[in-house]
């Protein structure tokens, strides 16, 4: 694979006060791939993502989006970089007082210099991309969790970003809806060629979507495995990794 490395994280260190959260993390994401950040609860995967989209500044290390080091860049340049990324938060983070259509229209109207009618047409196109036709005028509180994810996805995709960050896209959804969201993510990756970075601990999503993955661990505060998900499951000698992928508690591993 000779693709460009679109995101590079170099020697990232994260601290909250005196607590060390992530210790010296380095990895890179290639253009157009689906990259998964795996880890148990509390392993710092969401924290890692929040740093990668510039919501928090690292204690040390660099994060490159394209050629820009977002941890050390002027406000303007950072703002420019932001237009190339889309983020779907775990809670979908739709603005509660706006309809689905208004939520999706928000970035389009702000950054694309289009007239109201053109923005409305764009919103319609984006909503049909995620399969939300007919829900434009619903408030976020009136739609289900899966639809909220779709609406959040439509908003994240509004400006045709090069990189899409998804925080636990299938959390809190039933298996059927979760797999629908997974196929939507695959569809977006294949048709739009968007690089997708997913933070998740959902095994089904990991194996359906993941082309490459890294696994974070709470105790070592570092990457303990990387490679394809299947490889991590089958060939990794680390018991923590095997336990995670076989979904077994430590005891049964000892007995078997």
């Amino acid at each position: 694979m000779n693709r460009e490395e679109i995101v590079r994280v170099k020697n990232l260190v994260v601290r909250y006060g005196r607590d060390l959260i992530l210790k010296d993390i380095s990895f890179s994401v290639q253009e157009k791939e689906i990259f998964i950040i795996v880890g148990g609860s509390g392993s710092g995967k969401t924290t890692l993502m929040r740093h990668m989209v510039g919501l928090e500044a690292p204690a040390a290390g660099q994060i490159f989006i394209g050629e820009t080091d977002i941890s050390a860049v002027s406000e303007d340049r950072f703002f420019n970089t932001l237009k190339h990324i889309g983020v779907l938060f775990q809670s979908s983070a739709l603005i509660g007082s706006m309809t689905v259509a208004e939520n999706v229209a928000l970035p389009i109207a702000e950054f694309s210099n289009l007239s109201t009618g053109a923005v409305a047409a764009m919103v319609e196109i984006k909503l049909s991309l995620v399969g939300l036709e007919g829900y434009a005028d619903h408030l976020p509180s009136e739609i289900s969790g899966g639809m909220k994810k779709r609406a959040g996805l439509a908003r994240a995709l509004a400006l045709n970003p090069d990189i899409l960050f998804l925080d636990e896209p299938s959390a809190g959804l039933d298996p059927v809806i979760a797999s629908e969201i997974d196929s939507l993510i695959l569809h977006i990756n294949q048709t739009l060629g968007t690089t997708i970075i997913i933070v998740t601990h959902d095994l089904d999503s990991i194996f359906t979507l993941g082309q490459r993955a890294i696994m974070l661990d709470k105790s070592s505060k570092n990457i303990i495995a990387q490679g394809t998900p299947a490889d991590m499951r089958d060939n990794n000698p680390n018991p923590v990794v095997r336990r995670f992928f076989s979904r077994k508690p430590a005891d049964s591993l000892v007995k078997s």
Partner: peptide, 9 residues
């Protein structure tokens, strides 16, 4: 469909 859809209620 998109041409027919009434954008924004």
């Amino acid at each position: 469909r998109t041409a027919r859809a009434m954008p924004f209620g």
